[in-house]
Design a protein around this nucleic acid. Structure first.
Lengths: 341, 341
DNA sequence: TTGTAAGCGTTATCAC
DNA sequence: GTGATAACGCTTACAA
């Protein structure tokens, strides 16, 4: 295997065409006679040609690269999002350079530098490290997913509607008090709307409610312990009352359900549980958990479309980028399972 | 923002040096006087230079790209593996082009073509679609993880030892019959050793055992139904005997545990369960599940080291690639939790 | 329909 | 230490 790479020049010599014609064979085949197309095809085959996209990019500027910076792949939400984004290759043929950020500004700066150096055409960002203002200053197509995005385009779950759906269900199911369990979240980020939606719905229907916003730990053990305390507090505060619990995610919901099971051996009538995300754990729990399902596939699809919109604009002779960023919301769907009536 | 890109030529003109010197500033700074280094640094700053790695690659051939083809990101095993591989950026600064394969040969061929076109320096492959012989024919550095790899380098979990550890524990815990629940797996792939390790250990200790190798479905619902039947069969076949169940993964183990809980409201003494993978579900189950923990971090690390070994060899003037592929095994660790004594 | 020649932004090879 | 000049492999006017 003398792997000496064969180039357009070789093909040209071999076929007695010019490099230009070889190039046209790939980019504009109709402009060649069928006969010549075949000649070239044959030569490519015989010489074992392999294309070099890097040279192509250098010449025409279209890298077909999209950068992705994602906080982690531990949460199913992120890994599934990445999966959906990567799967868009089938439709659009963009290639993805992926970085996991883990909340380290220096590292993330390196990521951005690399991405710029490799001439990405666009960026999908899920990490929270850099403010959107800084990101916007790069003047490249960007779409943020579920993060602060004042100065850049974004796609988010309609967290407000998700919370409304959850609260509505609990109210319809005649819960006497509604409780939302979450961490204290900044007003800046989209997930804050889960709290607002919950609260407003309770107020609207005049149902007693409580927000329990606490530090809930950062791994399974600490989260378990934190929720154990929450559970005890709830048991003490609302004995014998029908409680509708809306938890910020399915991991919390699962732990909470396990705590209930450990105490009662089943889910008593006086508890109704709703999680958030529709992650696998909601399905795999001891009792399938009712949850607000994020439509990750739609979010990813919308994000790519929004990005491509911008990237296509940049390819025009006189690009006129969006003067003001677009923000899209995807409505989540309530998935009713066994932790609600 | 007149984003006209500034190049070495601009810097050269601005500083009255040649392009060569500017290049040296980056690749061989010591060869310049400190004074001139500063001059150039200043110019870079003032002109707002941004490097172009694509041009660099075209000129020197080192893309710093590594391709990854992974079957899915749904299984925690894969997403965590990807996470670990991507995180190696901190150490080695390789950039990753990631594709999810979903078992479609035409698509996967496209992936390979793209990766070759972008001049990747190496490939990490977890998908099972192409035989290692075909992959080897590309003559680039490759490492396979947990898949058939006769003709290419590989890193696998020591599945045999994992099964031995599981069986040993169940035997020590005085189980009267050992049962291994798995799908029928090809002898070619590494996971087949789980079956061998289990069987041999049972034989060695003269403990009665049964292999239950069945189609266990391809989503939660079908898997649940399949395991329900398995559970019934076991209940009927071995009443009142202490059963040690070794399941092929934690998802199965969790479902099985849930089935037991639904029948008994707890885990009876006559059941001992061991899963495989140490995925989050093992921890989050109604009872934390004892499991054979894959050391994903070590596997990923080893894979990168093995890949870099080969890639470095390719950079030498007279590369002498491995004449015979290297195969590494990582021993899993038994994680004892609450489903065994 | 095809060819010429000048890029694209670096690095490599010689010189001096 | 520094600089010409020719690659690297492809695209893109501009001609013909």
């Amino acid at each position: 295997m003398g792997a000496k790479k064969v180039t357009f020049a070789d093909i040209a010599k071999y076929t007695n065409f010019s490099k230009t014609t070889i190039s046209r064979y790939f980019n504009n085949p109709e402009s060649l006679t069928l006969e010549n197309q075949e000649k070239i095809a044959k030569a490519l085959e015989e010489l074992g040609y392999q294309e070099n996209k890097l040279a192509k990019v250098l010449a025409n500027g279209k890298s077909e690269f999209v950068g992705i910076i994602i906080p982690n792949l531990y949460l199913h939400y992120y890994s599934e999002m990445l999966n959906q984004i990567l799967s868009s290759y089938t439709d659009y043929h963009y290639k993805f350079l992926v970085f996991v950020s883990s909340d380290n500004p220096e590292l993330e700066q390196q990521y951005l530098d690399e991405l710029m150096a490799y001439k990405i055409e666009g960026l999908i960002i899920l990490s929270h490290t850099f403010p959107s203002e800084k990101l916007a200053s790069y003047h490249i197509p960007i779409v943020a997913i579920e993060r602060e995005a004042e100065h850049i385009c974004s796609v988010d779950t309609d967290n407000y509607m998700g919370a409304v759906q959850a609260a509505n269900l609990l109210i319809r199911n005649k819960c006497e008090v509604l409780i939302h369990i979450n961490v204290p979240v900044s007003k800046q980020i989209p997930a804050f709307d889960r709290i607002r939606g919950f609260e407003n719905t309770c107020l609207e229907y005049h149902v007693p409610y409580q927000l329990m916003l606490r530090d809930l730990g950062h791994n399974y053990e600490t989260t378990f312990e934190a929720l154990k305390k929450v559970f005890l507090d709830i048991e003490n505060a609302y004995p014998k009352r029908k409680k509708g619990i809306f938890l910020a995610n399915d991991t919390y919901a699962n732990i909470f359900l396990n705590l209930i099971f450990k105490k009662y051996g089943r889910l008593p009538e006086e508890y109704q549980l709703v999680g958030f995300d529709n992650s696998p754990i909601a399905n795999e729990a001891i009792l399938p958990i009712t949850t607000v399902g994020q439509q990750i596939d739609k979010i990813a699809k919308t994000a790519m479309e929004l990005l491509i919109l911008q990237m296509n604009e940049m390819k025009k002779r006189k690009p006129s980028p969006l003067k003001t960023p677009l923000h899209k919301q995807i409505t989540p769907v309530l998935v009713r399972r066994s932790t609600t009536d």
